[in-house]
């Protein structure tokens, strides 16, 4: 049984003649502790797939299952998290780093000491100095902000995390650091991940399985090794040749 499954999901925007299919009978699955890489150009439906997977948008047709049961936001609170492209937009500019990281947990527990301990633990896990806890987002570099966003996502010990273009806005060397961090944290925490990127090289490094989307449809879905060895769809082949 997969951790998260999209089963022939269709999402439409607009009405009548102006209807656009953002997703057209998309099926994909994220396994426990594994990473599914989702690749495609702008407008291919990657981010819509992510919001459906997180339960933020109900599909027009098809089903989303978490742990084998139909996805209900309330039931999965804290078990799903997201790390987005621009941490500046994901972090409240008026909150300190410590408060931002603590927030998902402090709304669930009254045990202040536990929250403080977890924040300290997570800062260390994402390789940030303890002194950073008292700073605000504008005082951090892009890489530091993304580490804070990752720490915030991990504090509730989620079983599933969506990374939506989470390293696209970072410089190459910072990007490499964050990618290595995600791999290490996944090995330690064992969360399943949906890693969305337009950069196949990034996805190839992280993902156990690669899924290629184009115009709202999945055109290829294969284990990373098989994908790299020989994708079947011409579009996937052209992506691979770009590398």
């Amino acid at each position: 049984m997969s951790l998260l499954e999209l089963d022939t999901v269709t999402v439409r925007f607009g009405h009548g003649a102006r209807t656009v299919h953002a997703l057209r009978e998309v099926s994909l699955a994220v396994e426990e502790g594994q990473t599914l890489g989702l690749v495609g150009e702008s407008g291919s439906g990657k981010s819509t797939a992510a919001s459906v997977a997180l339960g933020l948008r109900a599909p027009d047709a098809g089903e989303v299952r978490f742990d084998g049961r139909p996805l209900r936001r309330r039931r999965t609170a804290g078990e799903m998290q997201a790390v987005l492209q621009h941490p500046m937009w994901a972090l409240n500019p008026r909150m300190t780093v410590a408060a931002s990281i603590a927030e998902p947990l402090s709304v669930r527990t009254r045990d202040r000491a536990e929250v403080r301990a977890r924040v300290a633990e997570l800062l260390e896990q994402v390789s940030l100095e303890p002194a950073i806890a008292e700073r605000r987002p504008h005082e951090l570099s892009g890489g530091q902000r993304q580490r804070v966003a990752i720490a915030r996502a991990l504090i509730t010990r989620p079983r599933f995390i969506v990374f939506d273009e989470a390293v696209s806005a970072l410089d190459v060397s910072v990007q490499a650091q964050v990618l290595q961090l995600v791999r290490r944290l996944q090995a330690e925490h064992g969360f399943g991940a949906l890693f969305i990127s337009h950069d196949l090289a990034v996805v190839r490094y992280l993902a156990d399985r690669i899924c290629v989307m184009r115009a709202g449809e999945v055109v290829e879905d294969a284990p990373t090794e098989a994908f790299v060895a020989g994708p079947t769809h011409p579009y996937s082949r052209s992506l691979l040749e770009e590398l």
């Binding site: 190459v172 060397s173 490499a176 650091q177 290595q180 791999r183 950069d199 090289a201 190839r204 490094y205």
Partner: peptide, 20 residues
């Protein structure tokens, strides 16, 4: 050298890359 090593197409699992 460090910039080249950090390129996503050159990243390898299990090979740690550090910034300059």
């Amino acid at each position: 050298q460090s910039l080249l090593a950090a390129m996503p197409s050159r990243l390898r699992r299990g090979v740690e890359v550090r910034t300059y």
